[in-house]
Design a protein around this nucleic acid. Structure first.
Lengths: 345, 345
DNA sequence: AACATTCCCGCAACCGTTCCCATATAAGCT
DNA sequence: AGCTTATATGGGAACGGTTGCGGGAATGTT
């Protein structure tokens, strides 16, 4: 089937020299006659020689492969991050192996194991939303693997991180709603154990407080990002004696579902009730009305994460402590909050 | 930094036996005493031994890695395919290395080269929309690499392929428009050299012919999937003495842009003019009005492609010729194709 | 002419495994 | 007891490269 692989020995035999010399000629080692080198290069091309990275990796103990662990490549957010990572590390000759955890901590664990066996040179990880046990990544840390974490990170580990602008995101959207004259602003929050989730809720609360609006626990719903939870939350709000005039959410998909539920109830967005999201998912621009949201740039997050990984690989962080980078975002105003109709895109 | 790697020699030394025996114990070779095996397994666990896949790959000449080449991971279509491929091959212990060509034939070529150097065990490829020169993949074929092609394939190569239901897709959407009473149906087509593009156009033309509608060249626009081309096409159609009452497109993104352009011109969809797409991109369900489109299941395409790759790897196709699988789709009717006004339908 | 230096090149060890071959011991059969 | 056979183990080549060491030839130095 696959024909015999061309090796440096084949080249050596053909030229009547030793494989050492061929190796040196091929690796630009100065200790080789220029004519010999020329001859070697010529034969190498003629035979279509391809160096065997496995053999090389065995010696250097590196694979030039990076493991990227994400929950779900089909989410535009993660797809964009992956794209950014790849474009950052490709030019330095690193390949990326993508592994999806499908939001399952067990699968995440299995993926880490598998990639460790594949001997990747480093890991870029975004945890499952249900990951509470960080033993696996801690184990990688102890073993000395280059590690970069993004979006959903392990707070206890001193490794480079790239995260979204969680606090500012919710602070900004909440303030925007207040400035639009909204008084009773509900919050569709996330799981309490998630760091990003906590920060976003904090942004919401700080915005309320700074504008003299008292916090009302009835207006906050903690979801685990499921459609059921969102449904229940909206039902509960609508059953309140005084209904909210705005719903602030910590993720676009939730906001879009909220809008659909409101529409089904005959409520008009934004006239009766305003809605905001977080992230600026592509869908936010397509829905009607367009969703006002805090725009993030996942591709940039990927680029940053990739660059940090390259820095580690270049041993840049030998003494400087790794830092957490916050990828800035900005408010994208569309029709779901304003009195005016948005652009639709 | 990275501490000494634990090898089978370490285990052997600790037990005072030879590495051969350790290897046998670890690989479930029957020629080893059960007590010895137990001892080896114990020490292996104690030392946290991890087999070195590089050494193993060097011997077996395999990496258990598959190269996946796609134009753009950020397109939901490709993201879903990648997900399908991964879920198909993961359980057989294959990792996937994703490489994006960014729709550039040169990058595609470079990626193939790089992955070949990484010694992947096989390739799953979707070509660039501008790939006309298939020398690279032919080279892979000649070298005997396991190959599977999907969505955008090389027609000349006898390799397994998984494609969308191109012909039926456009046949179905066009017929749907005709059944809705549309008479002058324009077609937003693709590049003439693309196989998928040709087939979709053929579906459109066959539907017209079978319903006694004569083909009008003025109503067909060939694009290269750019926003500029779409814009020009719509301008041209609107300048026609008799404007079309429906626009049939071969891709959702084009259809959505068409709807926006029509809206900007003050035309109502579907009252004044109907629009159809192809693929059922997530956005098709979000836009207003919802886009009637021919739904494809890219995740299934990925699954199929992955399974075919596994079949090749298992040497299943030694004598049976590789076949092209068409992933079935179905019409998804939404608001963008209501019946013509005044028909009473 | 004697010696040091430089330049090339070959030898062999090594990276971590697998696997073939040889060998020693134990067991089975007449 | 003497022979074959099975079982368990060790030795070492191989996979495809890199690299330190040593040596021979050519060149430079005194």
């Amino acid at each position: 089937m696959k024909s015999h692989q061309v090796t440096i020995i084949d080249i050596a035999k053909k030229l009547g020299i030793s494989k050492s010399t061929v190796s040196r000629a091929l690796t630009n080692n100065p200790n080789v006659n220029s004519e010999t080198r020329k001859a070697v290069l010529e034969v190498a091309k003629e035979l279509d020689y391809q160096p065997n990275m496995l053999a090389l990796g065995l010696i250097k103990n590196e694979t030039r492969m990076l493991g990227v662990i994400i929950p779900d490549i089909q989410k535009p957010f993660f797809a964009a991050i992956v794209s950014g990572i790849q474009h950052a590390v490709d030019r330095m000759g690193y390949r990326t192996i993508i592994a999806q955890s499908d939001e399952s901590p067990q699968v995440e664990k299995a993926n880490i194991q598998a990639l460790m066996l594949s001997r990747v040179d480093g890991f870029l990880i975004c945890h499952t939303r249900d990951t509470r046990n960080f033993d696996q990544i801690k184990m990688l840390y102890q073993k000395g693997f280059p590690l970069v974490s993004f979006a959903r990170t392990c707070p206890e580990l001193p490794i480079p991180k790239v995260v979204e602008d969680d606090f500012n995101g919710l602070y900004t959207t909440t303030r925007h709603l207040i400035e639009q004259g909204r008084k009773r602003i509900a919050l569709l929050a996330g799981p309490k154990h998630l760091q990003a989730s906590k920060l976003r809720k904090q942004g919401y609360m700080d915005a309320l407080r700074q504008h003299g609006i008292s916090f009302d626990g009835d207006l906050v719903a903690h979801t685990r990002f499921t459609t059921e939870h969102v449904s229940v939350a909206v039902d509960r709000w609508m059953a309140l004696p005084v209904q909210p005039d705005a719903i602030c959410t910590i993720y676009d998909a939730g906001a879009i579902q909220v809008m659909q539920l409101l529409k089904a109830r005959g409520l008009r967005v934004p006239d009766d009730i305003a809605v905001t999201g977080f992230g600026d998912d592509p869908a936010a621009g397509f829905v009607e009305p367009g969703l006002t949201t805090f725009g993030q740039k996942p591709y940039e997050i990927g680029l940053l994460a990739g660059k940090k990984m390259l820095d580690i690989l270049k041993r840049k962080y030998v003494d400087t402590p790794p830092e957490t980078t916050i990828s800035p975002g900005s408010l994208v105003v569309r029709a779901s909050t304003g009195p005016v109709e948005g652009t639709g895109l």
